[in-house]
């Protein structure tokens, strides 16, 4: 052990190092951890957010309201959120993995295609929503073309079920490019020797994928699944731009309920209870995926 390194291990050294973390801690705790604490506290109160009023303690009343759902608006939003998170995650990852396999070799054509698949990510989700609304709306480009051909128009954003499907499709359009880049990076790590020897042993394309490429991609799959689920659980901007939650409440997801309904109605207690639940679900889901995927990743390590 080099002698100078002892200075890092002494109590004084550790204290001096601790000081280095203070600025980051101050910003992080002050504006992220304390708000989480506030959210937990407000979630047990009735509070309209006005400075003149103080929050009144109501215990579990807000959580009971979410569970009982007297106005019947919260439970539909749970289903919208689940549909977006589950269907969206599957579609995003299927599209991203499929295209990553098609575009894995670096040729000028493939590089161009990767850029084209990725570019929606640099646009803000709100703008993506507005743009697709102008294309798919009742007066939008697609319906005008259909009308010009003498066809009947399609209710992309006017029918509740169509609107939810359209919303998911637009989210997939905007998001799979990011995961595509991650899958491409993961494919770089697949050992070419292993694939070559599998092929020499007589494995076909499908078999090579199943027994060599897919296991080796395991760590990448974990990262893409967690990041997709986390980002799809909280989508808000694209909903606001594309459907504004409509028609009716057909595309109002949990984040929309928090920001555009509860918070907008000054129902801070309810908004915070909803926020606490979403943070818990997001954390729990990520944790579950990571734990479930760990076995697959261990398989990948023994393979590599």
């Amino acid at each position: 052990m080099p002698r100078t390194s002892t200075s890092w291990r002494t109590r004084a050294g550790a204290f001096a190092n601790g000081l280095l973390t203070v600025p980051a801690l101050a910003v992080y705790v002050g504006l992220l951890v304390v708000p989480v604490g506030f959210a937990v506290y407000y979630s047990f109160t009735d509070y309209n957010g006005f400075p003149s009023r103080t929050p009144t303690w109501v215990g579990l009343e807000n959580y009971r309201r979410i569970a009982d759902d007297p106005i019947g608006d919260l439970h539909p939003s749970v289903w919208v959120t689940v549909a977006i998170a589950v269907v969206g995650t599957l579609l995003v990852n299927a599209a991203a993995l499929g295209l990553a396999l098609l575009l894995r070799r670096t040729t000028p054509f493939n590089t161009f295609a990767r850029v084209v698949m990725f570019y929606p990510h640099v646009l803000s989700a709100l703008i993506v929503g507005f743009l697709w609304q102008a294309i798919l709306g009742p007066q939008g480009a697609v319906n005008n073309i259909l009308g010009g051909w003498g066809q009947s128009t399609l209710p992309f954003l006017a029918d509740p079920q169509w609107a939810l499907a359209t919303l998911i499709a637009v989210i997939v359009w905007a998001q799979f490019g990011v995961q595509l880049v991650l899958y491409l990076a993961g494919l770089q790590a697949v050992s070419p020797d292993l694939k070559e020897s599998a092929r020499i042993d007589g494995a076909g394309g499908g078999q090579v994928f199943r027994h060599v490429t897919w296991p080796a991609l395991a760590p990448t799959v974990t990262v893409t699944l967690v990041t997709t689920v986390l980002s799809l659980l909280k989508v808000y901007d694209v909903v606001l731009g594309l459907t504004n939650g409509g028609p009716g409440d057909a595309t109002q997801n949990w984040a929309y309920e928090i920001l555009a309904v509860s918070f907008a109605n000054n129902d801070i207690g309810l908004a915070c209870a909803q926020a606490v639940l979403l943070v818990l679900v997001a954390g729990l889901l990520s944790f579950t995926i990571i734990v479930l995927r760990r076995r697959a990743e261990e398989g990948a390590e023994s393979l590599g």
Binding site: L32, P35, I258, L259, A275, L278, V279
Partner: peptide, 8 residues
């Protein structure tokens, strides 16, 4: 999620 914790 940042935008969710924005309210508090």
């Amino acid at each position: 999620p940042a935008q969710i914790i924005l309210v508090p």
